[in-house]
Amino acid sequence: MSFARGEQTLHAYHDRELRGFARWRFERRLARSRELRRELEALALMRELLREGESRERTPDLWEGIARRLPAPGARPARTEVREGLAPLAWLLRPLATAAVAAAAAAALVFALLSGDNAATGVVRWIDSGDRNVMVLEGGEEVTIIWVLGDVSQPPREGGTGDRA
């Protein structure tokens, strides 16, 4: 097995993309090779550091997307009407609704964290855009949009896997 092929298999195993016989064969090699186990640990550590770095350093600037959804100057907000029968309960419904939304958000977050395959299903596996913020829209089945925001005069940092291209 060539070095490049072996590296691909290592990445695929780490990303839980190896299945069936290929996974079994790789795990057998893993059990035999201390060097391979070290490489796997190093890869896991590198990904973890990258993830920590991303979450610590990058605060996505979503202004460009938000600006489009802002109302035009002079636009009047739509009136929210409360039915007369529920009006006396409005003071109670509002905090209940807020609590329900918060609980749903917390549940979604816990589900996302517990779901091991979550990261493996996205199109963007790794990204480095230097000091610039990036907006990734992965909503649909058919398209993924990666949008680099702001100035692009500064180069991205060295390293990472993307320099293989």
Binding site: V124, R125, I127, S129, V143, T144, W147, V152, P155
Partner: peptide
């Protein structure tokens, strides 16, 4: 400008 690794399904469109 940008370096990235993408896992793209057959026929999926990626816009940068």
């Amino acid at each position: 400008t940008l370096q990235t690794d993408l896992r793209i399904r057959n026929g999926h469109l990626v816009v940068i």
